[in-house]
């Protein structure tokens, strides 16, 4: 069994969101970078769980980014995974990124490709589906549970107001979210071991970007909270009914 886990570098969940260069660039000053939580807590940990059940499983991690993504991929290796691949290009275009992952995946002959359900910076939910299409593989998105029985996978997937249980054969692309696995903290052995795990840098395949970010903007500031005294909750109901016209 060979699993490819897609790892993305994102700003920390508490990072201040601001823009520079006439609102065309994210202001990275003082920003702490983390592994995209969906990639780490759900995709990577699920792959590690599968390896714990079947130690012959090989886990490769892939990230698409410059050398500044290396601390993130080393941190991911500290949690688990046998080796990592960094595709040496920076892009904000999902199709460009997915094409790099698909090119590596095609070479590697993976049984499973795991992604997080989205990154917490771009919120695209795009990579898994694009990789699946480029590899002509089935794709199950927003998975909350994944079990493997031989070469048949049973996957729970989010639907509106509930879940759906599906079965599919391998190879398969899965996007992972809450429920798939529980967050883990890397231990000292993992951190030490990660330093010597192979990290291969490969050059990107040539792809024409389909999209471009023209500019960023911040949401308009809130006018401020209108506080209603605690002994007059009926006044809040009146405001929501008459002023905000919500019901």
């Amino acid at each position: 069994m060979k699993i490819l886990v897609c790892i993305s570098k994102t700003p920390d969940t508490t990072a201040k969101i601001a823009f520079t260069e006439n609102n065309t660039k994210f202001a990275t000053d003082g920003v702490q970078w983390i592994i995209n939580p969906y990639d780490e807590w759900y995709a990577l940990v699920k792959a590690i769980e599968l390896k714990e059940k079947d130690p012959s499983t090989v886990i490769h991690l892939i990230t698409v980014g410059g050398a500044d993504a290396e601390p993130i991929i080393r941190k991911a290796l500290a949690l688990g995974g046998d080796e990592a691949i960094r595709v040496n290009t920076d892009s904000s275009d999902s199709f460009t990124i997915a094409s790099q992952i698909a090119a590596v995946a095609k070479e590697g002959g993976y049984d499973l490709v795991f992604t997080g359900k989205e990154t917490i910076d771009y919120n695209g939910s795009a990579i898994g589906g694009m990789v699946a299409e480029l590899l002509d593989l089935p794709y199950v998105s927003l998975a909350t549970k994944f079990e493997l029985n031989g070469t048949t996978a049973t996957i729970n997937r989010e639907i509106e107001g509930g879940e759906e249980v599906a079965e599919a054969g391998l190879p398969l692309v899965i996007s992972c979210q809450k429920g798939m696995a529980e967050q883990r903290i890397p231990n000292m052995k993992g951190i030490m071991g990660a330093r010597t795990k192979p990290l291969k840098v490969v050059e990107p395949v040539q792809v024409e970007a389909l999209t471009k970010i023209v500019s960023f903007e911040l949401p308009p500031a809130k006018a401020g909270v209108k506080l209603v005294p605690a002994d007059q909750p009926e006044e809040l109901v009146r405001l929501l009914h008459e002023e905000a016209k919500l019901f």
């Binding site: 917490i120 919120n123 999209t211 970010i213 960023f216 949401p219």
Partner: peptide, 11 residues
Amino acid sequence: VFSGKAFANIS
């Protein structure tokens, strides 16, 4: 983008 903290204009 940024989980509801900003918007991006995509061409």
